[in-house]
Nucleic acid binder design. Sequence first.
DNA 1: TTGTATGCGTTATCAT
DNA 2: ATGATAACGCATACAA
Lengths: 330, 330
Amino acid sequence: MITIKDVAKEAGVSVATISRVLNNSPGVSDETRKMVLSVIKRLNYNPNLLGRNLRRMETKMILVLLPTISNPFYARIVKGIEDVAQKNGYGVMLCNTDSDVKRERMYLELLKNRLSDGVIFMAPEIDEGELNEIGEKFAAVQCCEYKEGANVSHVSIDNFKAAYKAVKHLIGLGHKDIGLISCKNNFLSTKQREEGYKKALIDFGIEFNPQYVRYGDYSFKSGFRATKSLLADADKITAIFAISDIMAIGAIKAANENGLKIPDDIAIVGFDNISFAPMYNPSLTTISQPKYDIGCTAMELLIKQIKERGDNKENIILEHELIIRESTVK
Amino acid sequence: MITIKDVAKEAGVSVATISRVLNNSPGVSDETRKMVLSVIKRLNYNPNLLGRNLRRMETKMILVLLPTISNPFYARIVKGIEDVAQKNGYGVMLCNTDSDVKRERMYLELLKNRLSDGVIFMAPEIDEGELNEIGEKFAAVQCCEYKEGANVSHVSIDNFKAAYKAVKHLIGLGHKDIGLISCKNNFLSTKQREEGYKKALIDFGIEFNPQYVRYGDYSFKSGFRATKSLLADADKITAIFAISDIMAIGAIKAANENGLKIPDDIAIVGFDNISFAPMYNPSLTTISQPKYDIGCTAMELLIKQIKERGDNKENIILEHELIIRESTVK
DNA sequence: TTGTATGCGTTATCAT
DNA sequence: ATGATAACGCATACAA
């Protein structure tokens, strides 16, 4: 292995000079710089960042914890994160937590062990206490999903308003019997989307009917089953609001299997606008989050924190949009 | 920041003893070990891996380069990689290359700079020469997509046989006018799938018709457009084989828009069995790759290489499967 | 069983 | 403009 010493010897200068050239530091004559550069190239030298990182006590890497990479929802967000990271000289480590606290903790070790300069949580599994502990010691940002009480910055949308808008859209189309497919979890977004659904009903004089609610787990199958169950028990239903696109797609498939025409017999709205939403058959009406911007903003917040540690908690809510497609309007 | 020295001082022993406890090295009395452990806990000490990594000249991290995380095809493979990695004490860094050589090279710096102990390419963008250079100096494995000539191990399926099987399935259903939606790129898999298509036609006495071929770019839109074009120019077509599920889904959407019934008027086969294939409407007949196993195998190969450097090139071909669904058979 | 001391590759401070 | 050298946190060979 070839080190900075070898380069120094070969170039006939000190390691300090090599280091200066490597880091574009001032105080090196053009001549020397050029010469050193050529030696570096000739020896095919690559600086060993293990040394630099130890010395500088930083890695220029940041950790992104996401529950799964299967959900295309995260793809655009990650792209935003990566673009801003790259622009600022940071690398990004994507880590699948599988929604498993243990796995999440395992990856957080990378932070505690200084292998990462900061962390972005897409959907933290650890509780507020643990989150605060991380937030105190390290640069951290919550992105999309977040713990409300935690003293850690977050970037998100207003899930309440978004759900309200989705259900209002259905009501505007004349629907009164609107099913809800939600999830039984502790996500704030879930609670807020449920509340948006209820508030819209109430505001337009429709009574909330608990019989019209089913729970899934964000999977296609669970959306499918929930819909089958809804259609069996509550056949007056003419519309469904699902809190995720994938479950909404399951709902469409189920409705179709039951011989229902979409959107004539039943209208369906999802949430997230994943890349498959416009591809589906019928294409899916849904709430679009500004995914790319969310990612960019989260990374910007994180970099600010890394640069100036101290408590600069900042919460940012970005705008969403209702995208109307074939699953509600012909 | 609290270091091994602080722990040593607090525990009243030398740093060597702390280090031994940290690494479960022998030669520490049970008593001392217990005492040290309690001090570590009390001080909430986390070893700084920057120091350890420099000393050991390894990071226990491996790099996984994938063209995009948007394609759900990669999700299961990555899961396999991660599971085997974890079992062996390795962490995984997922990196999006966006199919961009520059971005790929940027991430490969992590390898050259010793921030990673090895690399798995999901679809290498760099050429054979560069690939060989990497393979010579570092542990590296190609996974799914690979450069044939490169002297770097790979794990994949037999794309030729798989495509052959898919087209044979269509022929068995009575189809004679079978369109092909492929891609114009340099992937070996593309070439092999095209050849499988042609060979199946020939073997069953059907002449290959260049008019029946269109090219996309793996995207939904490109599959959609390709199909629209096919249907406009070659209305005798009763079946389509697309070399990727996402393009096949675009094909279904296009056929549907043209008022064609699937599979009665037109049958469609994809490739990859992404998680959306069974969810689609109609569900998609496709070739399933043993994604999880592919991931596991790639990681096992890589670990073997890390442990015993030297040229142990090994190519592994795993079995595929034709999964018949609604898009070809009612 | 435990401690001492050296070095991993780099950067940064201080001299020159 | 350049060089000598200490220091980053840790693991390990060797001494005790």
